[in-house]
């Protein structure tokens, strides 16, 4: 969980810090409590294994962040099938084609960015509801996944196996999370893009009349999300040694849940990947804890639903207090 702890301070330093800290506080506290509980109950709670296991959810959640931040109901439901698409492209095209090395990572991220761009263009140029556009993309990508590989493809001995273990001295899961996170931080912190994205998400009309290319900023948000999601596909291969179309829908709803639990304001304009990571950590640790306690999976559903409602209520009431306070 060091991933969360390291990244949060970086966000705090930003101008919108006050609010960001406010929104992911709930999930962070929850994750910390769950971490302690897990450590207490599980003497062999290995950091490496846990990081590897949380990585796909963390990546899916992070990939959902830019589109939501771009505002106007922005959301990308196609993150999960895009992750699977990336893995399947590796298994069925890149590796047989001799591109199975590290070069696959940037290639697939590029593919993810292209798919995200298509989604973004449909939203921006087509002026269509993001939730429906990305649902349509969900169908299209799920179909493509099935076409690429109707049955699971086994891949063993690839460099991605490191994601499940260690890459050099570093836990593989951490690397997996760090790649999309680095992409995001690079683009949003080192360039003007992050600031513009927040402004567009906060008030697109003002941004538009102030000369901000609102459409381009939005499309790029979806493209970034796509590139981040592409990493997730390779991690899935690393964990399971197979690529299968069956995982297309696995992370769609849970990624949104993680982001919401992490307190990312769904109206856009604020927050960041810290919210996604905190939310993903909380959900994962909860699952893990309930597993240890041998609570049946069925209770998990209830607790997880209640938590989600609690988190959004907390966020809504906190936002209301902030408004009142001024």
């Amino acid at each position: 969980m060091s991933a969360v702890d390291q990244r949060a301070p970086a966000i705090r330093r930003s101008p919108g810090a006050h609010f960001t800290r406010h929104t992911c506080l709930f999930a962070l506290a929850l994750a910390t409590a769950l971490l302690i509980a897990n450590l207490a109950l599980q003497p062999r709670f290995g950091v490496t294994a846990q990081l590897a296991a949380v990585a796909p959810l963390g990546i899916a959640a992070m990939a959902s962040v830019p589109s939501i931040m771009s505002g106007r109901g922005g959301i990308d439901l196609s993150v999960s099938p895009l992750m699977t698409l990336s893995g399947l492209l590796y298994a069925t095209r890149l590796q047989p084609g001799g591109l199975g090395g590290y070069v696959a990572l940037p290639l697939l991220m590029l593919v993810g960015a292209v798919v995200g761009t298509v989604t973004g263009l449909l939203v921006v140029v087509g002026r269509l509801q993001p939730i429906v556009v990305s649902l349509a993309m969900f169908f299209v990508l799920t179909g493509l996944d099935l076409k690429l590989s109707p049955s699971p493809t086994t891949i063993s001995g690839s460099w991605m196996a490191g994601f499940a273990g260690s890459m050099g001295p570093v836990p593989g899961g951490l690397v997996a999370l760090a790649v999309p996170a680095a992409l995001w931080l690079l683009v949003s912190r080192l360039t003007t893009y992050g600031s513009l994205l927040r402004s567009v998400g906060g008030n697109d009309v003002t941004a538009f009349t102030s000369g901000v290319p609102v459409g381009a900023v939005r499309v790029l948000a979806y493209a970034l999300g796509g590139a981040m999601a592409a990493v997730g596909g390779l991690v899935l291969i690393g964990l399971a040694s197979t690529a299968e179309a069956g995982t297309s829908g696995s992370y769609t709803l849970i990624a949104i849940a993680a982001v919401a639990l992490g307190g990312l304001p769904l109206q856009g304009g604020a927050g960041g990947i810290a919210n996604a990571l905190a939310g993903a950590a909380a959900i994962y640790l909860l699952q893990s804890l309930l597993g240890v306690l041998q609570v049946s999976q069925t209770w998990l559903q209830v607790i997880y639903g209640a938590l989600l409602v609690g988190a959004v209520l907390f966020g809504a009431i906190a936002a209301r207090e902030v408004k009142k306070g001024r």
């Binding site: 649902l135 349509a136 993309m137 969900f138 169908f139 299209v140 990508l141 799920t142 179909g143 493509l144 996944d145 099935l146 076409k147 109707p150």
Partner: peptide
């Protein structure tokens, strides 16, 4: 697969 794509 084709159906899904068509749906979308």
């Amino acid at each position: 697969a084709d159906q899904q794509i068509l749906n979308g």
